[in-house]
Design a protein around this nucleic acid. Structure first.
Lengths: 241, 241
DNA sequence: CGGAGGGTTGATTCCCCTCAAAATCAGTGG
DNA sequence: CCACTGATTTTGAGGGGAATCAACCCTCCG
């Protein structure tokens, strides 16, 4: 099972045959690295290539005219970067590496070629995109209807669950390169308020966010507090045989 | 060009051949109607069929344990209902008709069959899904980073633009069956506050929401006020020839 | 050692929520 | 035709959650 990141990603949705794996191999010609802080691409730009994150963290966001930023999601290893931009031929958001990252590049033209020749892969990508959308929807609910503390708790639990799926976290906690500024822009809060909320959650002994590490002091109580239901993240085995 | 709703929808993304159109014909066996207020399906349910809305309005939403509701989006003629639920074999949201609606049914198994035999249609559906996701992302930005007035203005402009694309609105306005409760649940506001905001926007002579009709008193000033940029909605002709 | 980025805390302000009560309207049935 | 009901809209009063503004701290690093 020592495969490319893309094969691992899509293998979660579709049981891939040998030939399909071979086709996937041809897809990502290049492995690239990007340094933290410099945009991979910027909103308004036309997207020529998508990437699959192999290591490191990235963030996708939109900037308003007055300079405010809303973070749509953070990307962790195994996630697509800029898939929507490639499909719509235009990027409606920006992506920036939070840490130095390694990615494999997937060219738009190659992707469409592969869809035409290997329909099951198109289905797999459609599933991956649907799962991404389910996450954005949950973020919408989170920001629209939960208060700052529940919102923050829910966010940390989601991140922990996602990281656990790729072996980078557990119910005990996970290493986390995010700043409180980034948290604020993701949760629709000011960084000052994020700080206060984190203190409250720490004092209640539910979760501790310090020194680049998130520790779930009581995963159970936190889950209950945030009404966190990870169903929308679950992907139990291939859906298409 | 007198086609089924689904063919019109996907034709916006891919130039469809005669055979592809024929395949699409076989997809929706049944035309169904639903009455206002009764859920099409409910979150947690496993999705067996998706629908394409032929007439009327619907709303997709999630309910929290304490009864609060967050509306994800409203669906107008031409939109998919429950596409994500079918693909992920599980509905993470509910859908309710706002008015009496007519839909065409698309069975999950048929859809996957068609993907296997007609890859270009899979690509078209992927595009449609990506466009839906772009809208949810914009809603996230709207709720996360705009105040109540800008948020409401942005929402009405988006709705107007979408309705214009299907011939149900213009820069002058559109017929709108939404209540202020629905607006509140979509915008993450209380219905009381929505009412106050609408009054302000009316007094500023930017937009008037009354008696089931939205009138853009000054589409230009409202667009500037809300920083509305419809790029994420645009779909100028087929992307794949 | 100076500067930048990030974290922490306090004081004040304000946007929006909650609670409450009328007013309006559509539909229903006597 | 009118009384009755329920849904929706409108307006007021008061309170609270989060933003803003402003310090000060720490650590890291060139």
């Amino acid at each position: 099972m020592e495969n490319t990141p893309l094969a691992r990603k899509l293998g979660a949705f579709v049981a891939l045959s040998g030939t399909e794996l071979a086709v996937l191999e041809t897809l990502h010609k290049r492995r690239r690295t990007f340094v933290a802080g410099r945009d991979l691409f910027h909103q308004g730009q036309s997207g020529q290539a998508a990437y699959v994150l192999a290591s490191g963290w990235a963030v996708s966001y939109k900037i308003l005219q007055d300079g405010q930023r809303q973070i749509v999601d953070f990307q962790i290893p195994g996630d697509f970067l800029g898939l929507r931009s490639v499909l719509l031929h235009m990027s409606d958001h920006s992506i920036e590496p939070i840490t130095d990252i390694e990615v494999t590049e997937v060219l738009a033209t190659d992707l469409l070629d592969v869809f035409a020749r290997t329909p099951r892969l198109a289905t797999a990508v459609l599933w991956a995109a649907s799962r991404d959308e389910a996450m954005v929807v949950e973020h919408l609910v989170n920001i629209g209807r939960r208060n700052a503390a529940e919102r923050t708790a829910h966010f940390l639990l989601e991140l922990g669950a996602r990281l656990s799926l790729v072996g980078m976290g557990s119910k005990a906690g996970f290493a986390c390169p995010l700043t409180q500024y980034l948290l604020g822009d993701a949760l629709g809060l000011s960084s000052v308020h994020v700080n206060r909320v984190l203190r409250k959650l720490r004092e209640k002994e539910m979760v501790t966010f310090r020194n680049g590490f998130v520790a779930f002091d009581s995963h159970n109580r936190l889950t209950e507090f945030a009404e966190f239901d990870p169903t929308y993240l679950d992907q139990v085995g291939p859906l298409l045989m």
